[in-house]
Design a protein around this nucleic acid. Structure first.
Lengths: 193, 193, 193, 193
DNA sequence: CATGAATGAGTGTTCATTCAT
DNA sequence: AATGAATGAACACTCATTCAT
């Protein structure tokens, strides 16, 4: 694949992302993607085996980004510094989510038509919760099971950003992240008080 | 509509629910529903204007149930009794979710094809968060904005049940609800500690 | 068939006529008819073999009426009295058409789905043109072939009323009939001038 | 759209016309059209938004043709030359009708399902009668209202050709046009005799 | 005599994918 | 490397007709 080919593929991926964001996974049409990328159907299938192949490619990119983001969270202090750590970390989440939210949601669904995509999702979910589990185990209150708290934490973070963005809740980003840091710190990390 | 008609309509609603649960909203086919209800296409359209009409009907039933469930949460105490209150309340959530989860998710999505359904969803979201907002405002920590905490709380509850059920996380129900009660109480209701 | 049955059948025929007039032949649904007659589908098929059976019944009624109307036209005088004769005759046409227009049009079409109906139409057409042919042969200009003039005359009468009624041309009935009488008399009956 | 596309579209239009002629507007199936054009359903919808879009396209073509034909009629002389003018003019009508009759009839109906098509029809009707009105006003008998005579003339011409073609009346074309020229001239244009 | 309910073949339309150039 | 064109399986929905009560 030469330079031109690379450019075309990138255009398709970008367009795919845009359509995914605007229309959602199930309403994404190959037609919209190629129109957005100013190419043809023929070209699309030159670079991707099928529609889900493109989404899969996007998903892999997304998984790397998310893993990096999640991995960023070091051991969380039980005191006030812990809250501050979470604030910084959520800041990064927010940026990642803003970019990859649509892709993320594509495989956070349970009824994903493509098994390949489902698998990526399952693996990502496992990886993310494993990291969170470890962090919670280190610092969480003793009567909370990290096994259960990890998915709950992921649930809260992912969906809150989702609601706020998609429902158009008028909110100051700073304030949102600040509040979330507090809630998360108290709920999951503050140790036994 | 006579007794037989009522029965047929109920069969269709039941089958619709089952298919929704198994395949998800976007993969739900009228064909599957009528097969499940052991009727014909013609009969389906005798009782519902279109596919979304059935989902809408289900959604309305679901909204009533959810509203009742959410309304059940009284003022949450800041102490240990508060945690117990939440446990009982989550118990009820769990039951409601087990029954109506698939419908709930159909309009918790942002890209809902049917405007009527989207509206039901938006209203339900507004109602639920309004109630939660009030409860948090009464008892939550002073440095958490109820405006933001309410959707975050809903996010956490809904998605956690969702993950646990759909991802097949092997978990004891009791333990899950217990852990969640703790996390929620500490994160959203324990007052300033 | 007892009195009640007769009444039901009449209600169905009336409703059928009304729907035919409002929606046209191809858009007439059994459902509309039974709703109009305040009966059920089951009852409909108690009195008519199928939808076309009803239209056929209506058509036969219509044919009788038309034949009577056409037969009313005696030998047309070549002079002014002829014009007056036509005026009176067209008056009757107008009344018949106002009542039976929709049915008439149902079998004046070439693509009639029901062979039975088509046959009634063909026979009616033949009967009507035969009568007109005779009248034109008696009084028409020598260089006009009655064989051709007869359908042309029918065409003009039927369609003019149709246009005027359906296109909503704002027109005084008296004036319309007067004008038509003149045109027809001059075109088809005035003899060689 | 390239050459091949143009060819395919033309094939579809031709096939559409053929089916329209054979089956009539209401019985025209997309299936018949694509079979006639030796293409697929998918291809049909590549070129036309829906079934009515094709008929609409045909109708526009037809309207142009008809308007040109009608516009061909110059001021009609009151004497014998007028009859000759009409003969030549009807000759052209006959050719146009033979080609576009089926389309013409599709919007000469009152109950046209597609509003777009109905509008084209209404406009065409208005245009045609306007032209005829002018011609009749110039040369017609003083006691005939051109406002009413114009639709009557159109009615007679259109329907006569229709009857003769569709009823399979065995007739020599020359003779038909000759007779019609006489009847029309005498009925609508001969001035006060 | 009447009816509410059920049926299923038929029809229009969409869209992922393939192909010839 | 690119593309316009073609395809057909899949799906939602309609409506004349039949049937059990």
């Amino acid at each position: 694949m030469r330079a031109r080919g690379k450019r075309t593929m990138a255009k398709l991926l970008d367009a795919g992302m845009a359509v995914l964001a605007e229309r959602g996974y199930h309403a994404t049409r190959v037609d919209d993607i190629v129109r957005g990328a100013r190419t043809s159907h023929g070209t699309f299938y030159l670079y991707f085996a099928d529609k889900e192949d493109l989404v899969r490619t996007l998903a892999e990119e997304c998984v790397d980004e998310i893993n990096a983001t999640v991995g960023d969270l070091g051991v969380v202090a039980t005191g006030a510094e812990g809250r501050e750590q979470l604030r910084v970390w959520l800041q990064r989440w927010s940026e990642t989510y803003r970019r990859y939210g649509p892709v993320l949601r594509a495989w956070m669904e349970d009824h994903v038509p493509d098994p390949g995509l489902a698998e990526i999702g399952a693996k990502a979910f496992a990886d993310i919760t494993a990291t969170l589990r470890a962090r919670i185990a280190e610092a969480g209150p003793s009567h909370v099971d990290p096994e259960l708290a990890a998915p709950a934490l992921l649930a809260m973070i992912e969906r809150t950003f989702y609601y706020v963005l998609s429902r158009g809740i008028p909110v100051d980003d700073e304030a949102l992240i600040d509040s979330m840091a507090t809630m998360i710190h108290r709920g999951f990390f503050a140790g036994d008080s």
